[in-house]
């Protein structure tokens, strides 16, 4: 009976994986189609890749996505980490209120956050474009960094900084060489979340952008009205980059572990 259950589970799991990957595989295959059709494969060609590389708007959108993500991640990671440390030492009332407000962008539907920011920029006559998109990205990334750093700070000994300073460290030194190294895993995962959130964002970018500044999501959204296999091509490249990065992230610890094991074995021998 148990075996039967596993078979049912395996079938369902398999179906689910097919469901997840089918559209992606389909898209990759059709990015090499020589015809314009999205349903009929006419033959292999790199025509759409050529089109993509020659399409300034597309390349620009890829560039915008990456630049915004990198800057937003850097700023929100630093801002989030420093603020989380500050908040943990603040008075309870301030901390609680700040954490409540910090939850707003996470809890709110994206479209509400997006409209709020759009109204903010319009009301204060900030011209919408690259800068507004960047500011908005920092605004919705930082809360995630704080959320991922906070538990790490809470698990620290509260007297750690004082101990460092008693031993003669300046406050800056205590911060950078005692506290931050301890909470690094939280900072790192916060940065990772910020980066993916920024790369993935459509709704907020869509409402706060202007003057033709587009990221990848906005480009796909505006171009998808007409059949355009170049979108398949650029998507395939995105999939390729992400898969590579993920494999590297997942493989490096395994290799490190193996090396360490080997070294330990040598030491023992």
């Amino acid at each position: 009976m148990k075996k039967e259950k596993r078979i049912f589970g395996k079938l369902l799991m398999g179906a689910m994986l097919i469901f997840f990957y089918l559209p992606i595989v389909f898209m990759i295959i059709f990015s090499f189609n020589s015809g314009k059709s999205l349903t009929h494969f006419d033959g292999f060609s790199l025509r759409w890749y050529e089109r993509m590389f020659n399409n300034r708007e597309m390349m620009q959108s890829l560039y915008t996505t990456i630049i915004v993500a990198v800057i937003a991640t850097a700023v929100s990671t630093v801002l989030g980490t420093v603020s989380a440390i500050g908040l943990s030492k603040s008075r309870r009332v301030i901390k609680d209120v700040a954490m409540q407000v910090n939850d707003f962008p996470i809890m709110n539907p994206e479209i509400v956050t997006a409209i709020g920011l759009m109204l903010l920029f319009i009301t204060f006559h900030v011209e919408k474009g690259f800068m507004t998109m960047l500011l908005a990205h920092i605004a919705f990334c930082t809360p995630y960094v704080i959320l991922s750093v906070m538990p790490k700070i809470r698990s620290l000994d509260p007297n750690l900084a004082d101990a460092a300073m008693d031993l003669g460290a300046t406050p800056v030194k205590a911060l950078t060489s005692v506290i931050v190294p301890q909470i690094m895993p939280g900072v790192f995962s916060g940065a990772l979340i910020a980066f993916t959130m920024s790369c993935d964002d459509f709704v907020i970018s869509y409402f706060v952008t202007g003057r033709g500044v587009k990221n990848l999501s906005i480009m796909v959204y505006t171009m998808s009205k007409r059949v355009n296999p170049s979108i398949n091509a650029i998507s395939t490249i995105v999939v390729l980059i992400i898969t590579l990065v993920l494999i590297i992230i997942n493989v490096i610890p395994v290799i490190k572990e193996k090396r360490e094991k080997k070294r330990n074995e040598k030491v023992i021998a």
Partner: peptide
């Protein structure tokens, strides 16, 4: 392995993943 297999698509831009369905669902599609 399975968790990784489920998270990989989540890393790909939502718009791109949704767009990918158009070909499969469209008229004369698979």
């Amino acid at each position: 392995g399975l968790i990784l297999a489920i998270t990989i698509p989540m890393w790909i831009n939502m718009l791109v993943r949704t767009y990918a369905w158009i070909g499969i669902l469209s008229e004369g599609g698979p």
